[in-house]
Simulated assay, not measured.
Amino acid sequence: MNHYFLNNNLSSTMGLGWYTQYMYTNQTDDNDRHLLFTSLYYNIKHTPVIKAGYFFNTYLLKINIRHSILALNDLM
């Protein structure tokens, strides 16, 4: 499996920030996996670090059906 990552963090002097992470995986059975996490946050306190915000997370798996059916037939 090969994993590819993209990470990004933007922050402002007003305490607002936006963090994004994306991961793509090409799996050995020709399937693909996509993971996305993004968060919009506000930095309430610097020491200790306290942040509050909203986040969004999604997961997508692209399945190669032809390959999966052949694998199931091998088991029978």
Rank of each mutant, 00 (worst) to 15 (best):
S68T: 11
N64R: 07
Y54I: 14
Y42I: 03
T47Y: 05
G17D: 04
Q21V: 07
L40I: 11
N31Q: 05
T25S: 15
M76T: 12
M14Y: 14
F56W: 11
H3K: 14
F55H: 05
M76F: 10
N31T: 09
H46V: 04
H3T: 08
N43T: 09
Y59H: 11
I63P: 00
Q21C: 04
H46I: 02
H3F: 11
T58I: 02
L72M: 13
T20F: 02
Q21A: 11
Y22T: 08
N43W: 02
N2H: 11
H3Y: 11
N2T: 14
G15I: 03
V49N: 11
F55Q: 06
D32Q: 15
K45P: 00
N57F: 10
L35G: 01
D30H: 10
F37N: 12
F56K: 06
G15A: 04
L61S: 08
N26S: 15
S12C: 04
L40N: 04
S39M: 08
S39N: 05
S39E: 09
A71S: 12
F37G: 05
L16G: 03
L60V: 14
Y41F: 15
Y59G: 06
I63S: 07
S11E: 10
W18K: 04
K51R: 10
L40A: 12
N31V: 01
L40Y: 07
N8P: 00
L10M: 08
N57E: 13
K45G: 00
S39Q: 08
R66W: 03
D74G: 15
A71V: 07
L10T: 08
T38P: 00
I50M: 06
N26K: 14
A52F: 07
T28G: 07
S12M: 04
F5Y: 12
H67S: 15
L6A: 09
L6P: 00
W18N: 04
